[in-house]
């Protein structure tokens, strides 16, 4: 498990001991192409990292069905909503390849942050980096810059 965790960017600043503590709350989830990983509206309880494969994030639009907005690839995370209190999934994640995910329960992860503030800071720092990048990339997508 520790080997697999090392490849996750979110956890790249952690030392061995910290990684072991994360490994203790992590589990592996395997999904097939087309499988739903999390479903919009459902309770958001776990943050996931892609160890292998690819997952698309899609929002349901009435009359248009599921509209994919981005994909998450190896080393990247999805489901940061699970770190928010009483959160629900804002989008549906679906495997677009056979995919292996590392699942970290949100509540357990928050407990770990409380116990080891340094670990918490390091992971949250990387989470923020991911959120910021994803937001920025979304702006660029919205610009529809290839239209002309």
């Amino acid at each position: 498990m520790k080997q697999a965790l090392r490849k996750i960017r979110l956890l790249c600043d952690l030392d061995d001991g910290q990684l072991e503590r994360i490994a203790a709350i992590a589990s592996i989830e395997r999904v097939k192409t087309g499988d739903i990983v999390v479903e919009e509206q459902g309770p958001a309880n776990s943050i996931r990292a892609v160890a292998e494969g690819r997952v698309s994030i899609a929002v349901s639009v009435p009359g248009r069905g599921e509209l994919p907005v981005c994909t998450v690839s190896v080393g990247e995370i999805l489901g940061w909503s699970a770190l928010l209190p009483q959160a629900r999934w804002l989008a549906t994640a679906r495997a677009v390849k056979d995919t292996t995910l590392i699942v970290l329960r949100g509540a357990a992860l928050l407990d770990l942050y409380e116990q080891d503030r340094e670990l918490g800071y390091r992971v949250m720092h990387r989470t923020f980096e991911t959120v910021a990048e994803r937001l920025h990339d979304t702006w660029l997508q919205l610009m529809d810059s290839y239209r002309q």
Partner: peptide, 20 residues
């Protein structure tokens, strides 16, 4: 940048590919 459910490739701005 934009995809339907049938698209199984990457979705996102080209910078996302570079970051990986």
């Amino acid at each position: 940048d934009q995809a339907s459910r049938r698209w199984l490739g990457n979705i996102g701005f080209v910078t996302r590919l570079l970051r990986r």
